[in-house]
């Protein structure tokens, strides 16, 4: 019992370190990648190819002055970045990176865990907006709640057919199912589309980055934050991107499974599929513009949710008829 706890603690520590390292180099990928999409060079001064730029950014952020605005609700002002950061980090715990024991927490209802954590992460966003005591963050926070809750529903509806076909809520077993029968992107393509679009909204990425619409909201819910608290939000935001991509890769693209019968190496294949989605989200960020807020809400409730529901009913019919239940 104690040994199992110790092993889990070590796995968790390794995962956290890996995620923080991934966060640092995602900033590098983001800046160089966006630059190449815009026919320019990214940062290339600090270290070869600018590879030490994240370290320079971290040092700069640490030495910035930490301001607390006068009208801030102190407790919530301090708590919000902590919540955002913690729940963004926690979501990765159930994602299997390899067969059998290569997962921090093999929860029976991994899918429900992912939902719970995504919804609790919303708290960080709007509490930050509220606690800042000024109107731009508040507007950003309110917009976030409405949009994130709406897209969370579509997300849930899109995962249901996957869960139905796999017959389990456990992420490791979903990957095993895909290993045996083929990836869900083939069987559940509409669900994949809905899930991907809703995921873009959950990550607050273009075309749904309402929460920080710079032209409208200064910096949205984290306007009044500086130094390490801002870094916590920034980490949370990029971690959502990282974790969301890993989730799509796990649920629809087979996770750690090696495609086309190539040799199975634990972390590698998930990394490749994850990198594919990181690139895809970055590509979309560089190419498309932001939707208008009301269009976005209408899209979530009027298009994504009905499409997901109808597809769920179709899948349920085929699962029952095909005797997979």
């Amino acid at each position: 019992m104690i040994w199992a706890l110790f092993v889990t603690a070590v796995k968790a520590l390794v995962l956290i370190l890996a995620l923080l390292f991934a966060f640092a180099y995602i900033t590098w990928i983001m800046r160089r990648g966006l630059a190449r999409f815009q026919i320019r060079l990214g940062p290339n001064r600090v270290g070869p190819f600018g590879l030490l730029q994240p370290i320079a950014d971290a040092v700069k952020a640490i030495f910035k002055e930490d301001i607390t605005v006068a009208r801030a609700d102190r407790f919530l002002y301090w708590l919000a970045p902590f919540l955002a950061f913690t729940f963004a980090l926690a979501a990765f715990a159930v994602i299997p990176v390899g067969p059998d024991g290569w997962v921090v927490a093999n929860i029976d209802m991994g899918v429900l865990y992912v939902f719970a954590v995504s919804e609790l992460a919303i708290y960080g966003v709007f509490l930050a907006g509220w606690a800042s005591g000024s109107k731009y963050p508040l507007m950003g926070g309110l917009r976030s709640i409405a949009a994130l809750v709406g897209y969370e529903l579509a997300l849930g509806m899109a995962i249901l057919p996957v869960v139905l076909m796999a017959g389990t809520l456990n992420l490791q077993e979903i990957v095993e199912w895909q290993k045996q029968h083929g990836y869900f992107i083939i069987y559940q393509f509409p669900a994949f589309l809905v899930y991907f679009i809703a995921s873009l909204a959950e990550m607050s990425r273009t075309p749904f980055d309402f929460a920080e619409a710079e032209q409208e909201l200064v910096a949205g819910f984290h306007t009044e934050y500086s130094s390490m608290k801002f870094v916590a939000f920034y980490i949370a935001e990029l971690l959502h991107w990282i974790v969301g991509s890993a989730l799509i890769a796990t649920l629809f693209l087979g996770g750690w499974d090696a495609p086309f019968g190539l040799p199975e190496i634990p972390v590698l294949w998930l990394f490749v599929k994850w990198a594919l989605f990181i690139f895809l989200v970055l590509w979309i960020w560089a190419s498309w513009f932001r939707t208008r807020y009301d269009q976005m809400i209408r899209f979530a409730w009027g298009v994504l949710l009905p499409v997901a529901t109808v597809w769920f009913l179709i899948t349920a019919y085929y699962v029952v008829k095909g005797g997979m239940a």
Binding site: F115, E119, L120, I122, F126, W130, L142, I145, A146, E152
Partner: peptide
């Protein structure tokens, strides 16, 4: 905690 309370706090804000 994730949906109902979020909407509750949304209304308060």
């Amino acid at each position: 905690a994730g949906a109902i309370m979020v909407l509750f706090v949304f209304v308060i804000m």
